[in-house]
Computed example of a mutant assay.
Amino acid sequence: MERAATLLLLVTLAGCSSSATEAVLAPVSEPRVAARSIPDYQPSRPAPRVLADYLIVDKSERLLIAYSNGQPIRAYRGIQFGDAPMGHKRFEGDERTPEGIYTIDTRNPRSSFHLSLRISYPNRRDQAFAAQYGRSAGGDIFIHGQPTGYRGPPLQGDWTDGCIALTNEEIEELWSLVPDGTPIEIRR
């Protein structure tokens, strides 16, 4: 049932690709987005009045793009990851950010980091893989801002435990754009 719902969602969102079949069979292998045409986050620019209905995180480009009705509405560049950013998260403590299609399943305004949006990792496949090795897949992967109470400039480098970090201003805008249940695709 979960797979059927995911496939239906992918077919619905396939308007960005050349065919629905391509989107269902290989959503992660689509060509890279032409990011130059997407409005970047700017502190002085008000958030768009539309809500995002899909997010793409491109780990190699360090780019998060929010979409609405197949059109990019905002881009966040220079995002940060865990200490081992490349490769799919396999186990608790591996400091990797998951890759694949998940959802934003809840939000936490009182987390240890400024405004956290939780990603639905691990899914059943992630759990089964880790279980084969007698390990935990981990969890509590979020998109969030800087540590709560930290007053300095944004932390540099990859410093999370596998989460996706933005500046506090960026997460405030994204928080207002992204409802719970929004699909998020995380690519290499």
Rank of each mutant, 00 (worst) to 15 (best):
K59V: 02
I73Q: 05
I119K: 10
A4P: 10
I104E: 03
G82D: 05
T12S: 13
A165F: 04
T103E: 10
T106V: 07
G70C: 09
I164M: 10
Q80Y: 10
A165D: 14
E22Q: 15
Y41V: 03
T182A: 01
N168P: 00
I164R: 04
Q80T: 11
S18A: 14
Q42A: 13
D140I: 00
T6R: 15
P153E: 09
A165H: 07
P48M: 07
D158L: 10
F142A: 08
G181M: 00
E172G: 07
I38D: 09
I104Y: 01
S111L: 01
N108Q: 13
V57G: 08
S17C: 14
V57R: 09
Q132H: 14
A5S: 15
P39G: 08
S112P: 02
R135H: 11
D58G: 02
R3W: 15
I184G: 00
I164H: 01
A5W: 12
Y121I: 01
A137R: 07
G145V: 09
D40M: 06
G162P: 06
F142M: 13
S68K: 15
I56V: 12
R135N: 06
E173P: 03
G157D: 05
Q42E: 15
L117W: 01
P153W: 07
G15R: 11
Y41R: 05
K59Q: 07
G149I: 03
L25S: 12
L115Y: 06
G181A: 02
I101P: 00
S44C: 12
Q42F: 12
F129K: 04
E99W: 00
G181R: 02
R49Q: 15
A128Q: 14
Y102S: 03
Q80C: 12
A131I: 08
I171L: 05
Q146S: 07
P85D: 07
A66E: 05
S111I: 04
A66K: 02
E61R: 10
S68T: 11
R151W: 06
P39Q: 05
S136H: 14
L63Y: 09
R36W: 15
G152K: 08
P183M: 05
I184H: 01
E99Y: 02
R151H: 06
T103K: 08
V57P: 04
A5G: 13
L177V: 11
G87K: 05
I141E: 04
P122A: 04
Y41D: 07
A34N: 11
Q71H: 11
I143H: 05
I186E: 02
T167E: 01
Q71R: 13
R151L: 12
E99I: 01
A128D: 13
V178A: 05
L7S: 10
V24P: 02
I119W: 09
P147A: 08
E92Q: 14
D105I: 02
L166R: 03
L166Q: 02
Y150W: 14
H114G: 00
V57S: 02
T148C: 01
A35P: 03
S19K: 09
A66Y: 00
P98C: 08
G138L: 01
L174S: 06
Y41L: 04
E185R: 08
T6M: 15
E173T: 11
R110Y: 13
Q71A: 12
P109M: 13
